[in-house]
Design a protein around this nucleic acid. Structure first.
Lengths: 340, 340
DNA sequence: TTGTATGCGTTATCAT
DNA sequence: ATGATAACGCATACAA
């Protein structure tokens, strides 16, 4: 391995001068810099980044903790994070936590051992105490999900508003028997969507009915969606619309409906959430809420590095990015006037 | 920050002893080790990993270069890589190359700057010369794709055999007018699948017809698959089966067929490749080739670390893992006897 | 403008 | 079994 010292000898200068040249210090004469650069070229010298980082006490690495990378929703955010980090010359260590708290903890400990300068969390457990500790001692930003009372910046859409918009749209279409499939987890998005659904129903003077609210599992799995859908479609009278908290769940509802010979949206309106890839692969194209995943990832990086570079000053604690209601084929007015 | 020195003072020993304790050296008396551990506990000492790495000249990090993370096929492999690395206490830097050669190069340079100990490549350009250089100087393994004449271990399925199996299965079903949608890239998998298709046709005494072989774009995009499918379905006589080199392309064919009022598999047999998530979301469930993505990822890590730890001795240059033919709903015998 | 010397937090060599 | 000390490769305060 060729070191800075050999470059110095070859160029006939001291290691300090080489180091200055490497770091573009203006204090080095152009001619000298030229000689140094030539020596670097000739010896094919490549700086040892860990050594530099040790000295500077930084790693140029950020962590991105995600419950999985199979979900295209997370994939997109991670892509955004990667893109922005690439531009800013940071590396991103993508950590697949599998939703396990102990995995999250082990990954976050890389902050303490100086293997990473900061972390972006996309969905993380918070009921263990250690999250608050890390948020205090380290640079962390939350993306898409956030813990309400955690002093840690976040980037997400306004889930409450988006849900209200979607359900109001269904009401506008003429639906009043609107069911919902939520998820069996404690994510803030899940809670806000549930609240938005309940509130908008209440405002329309509709009593929320327990039998119209079902839960898929924590990971929004297709199978659990199918089960919830089957229960919902067995109700009498049947709901005329089903609002799902994820696209994959909406697809499972469509599947269950077709199994029963029901036409979507003719006999049943179905809506999803997130607008991931497979919403427009098969008809009916899904009516859903589009999240700016890529941009959310990018903003998270910017927020994190702001904190890293300008002390701990973060622009605002909660950043909400605009969502979009994607009106496509899976939602339509109910066929017949309904009786409640 | 608390350092090894402070721990040493607190425990009344030298830094050497603390270091030995940290590394479980048997040369330290149990009682002393106990004192040290207590000091570590009390001071909440966390070793500085970069400093250790500098000294040991390693990083405990491996690179994983993928053309994107959106494709669930890559996601699964990356998950396998991450899982195995986690078990072996390595971190993985997931690099989204976007299929750009300059991105690949920049990421691979992290090997030279000691930011990573090795790399796993899932699809990478090889026509620039530098790949051979890295393969020589660094520890690299190729996963799912490989460059035939590159002296670098690889893990993949046997694409040629898998394709022959699939097309033979279609022939067994009674098809003889079998079209293929390939992809406009130079991946070894693409080339072997094409060759397998041509060979098995030839062996059945069928002349390959140029109009039955179409190309999707390099990334197997749904849109490009749709275009290829439309061309194919406009042929007369129409092919009775279409073999696609990716599941997403198969879905696009089904979509195009339905657009024309054709039933799959009644009027047209369609098969995919990879067996990713969305093959069983909507009917007809896709007949496809299943790849052991997760295991391929894991094996890549094992292979890489074997090379890292036991010198450069790798068990074998080309590792082929078993694939599986998934016979589901999208393939069936042709409706009518055909005339060639 | 450039060089000398010290330190970043470890591990490892050589004593004892 | 333990301690003193020299690296590891680089950046920087201070001198010149």
């Amino acid at each position: 391995m060729v070191t800075i010292e050999q470059v110095a000898q070859h160029a006939g200068v001291s290691v300090a001068t080489v180091s200055r040249t490497l770091n573009n210090s203006p204090a080095v004469k152009a001619a000298t810099a030229q000689r140094v650069r030539q020596a670097i070229e000739e010896l094919r010298y490549v700086p040892n980044q860990p050594a530099r980082n040790l000295r500077r006490n930084e790693s140029q690495v950020i962590l991105a903790l995600a419950p999985n990378f199979s979900n295209p929703y997370y994939s997109r955010i991670l892509t955004g994070i990667g893109d922005r980090a690439w531009e800013l010359e940071y590396s991103v260590l993508v950590c697949n936590t599998l939703g396990h708290a102990n995995s999250e903890l082990r990954f976050l400990k890389m902050l303490e051992s100086h293997q990473a300068d900061g972390a972006i969390l996309l969905g993380c457990h918070w009921d263990y105490g250690w999250l608050a500790r890390f948020a205090q001692q380290s640079h962390i930003v939350q993306c898409c999900e956030y813990v309400p009372d955690l002093a840690c910046p976040s980037v997400s859409i306004d889930n409450y508003a988006a849900t209200r918009e979607m359900v109001a749209y269904l009401q506008g279409l003429g639906h009043s028997r609107i069911a919902m499939i939520g998820a069996d987890n404690q994510y803030i998005s899940t809670r806000l969507r549930r609240q938005g659904y309940l509130d908008i129903l209440a405002e329309a003077g509709l009593e929320p009915r327990a039998e119209l609210y079902r839960l898929a599992d924590a990971e929004y799995s297709f199978a659990s969606g199918l089960a919830a859908a089957q229960e919902l479609l067995a109700e009498t009278p049947r709901p005329t619309a089903i609002f799902c908290v994820s696209d994959i769940l909406a697809l499972s509802v469509i599947s269950a409906a077709q199994e029963l010979g029901l036409d979507v949206p003719g006999d049943l309106t179905v809506t999803g959430f997130d607008d991931v890839d497979y919403t427009t692969i098969v008809h009916p194209y899904l009516t859903t809420v589009s999240q700016p995943c890529h941009e959310m990832g990018r903003r998270s990086v910017d927020l994190l590095l702001d904190g890293l570079q300008n002390g701990k000053a973060v622009p605002s604690e909660r950043t909400f990015l605009p969502h979009r209601l994607m009106k496509r084929e899976s939602a339509a007015p109910p066929k017949f006037a309904e009786t409640i």
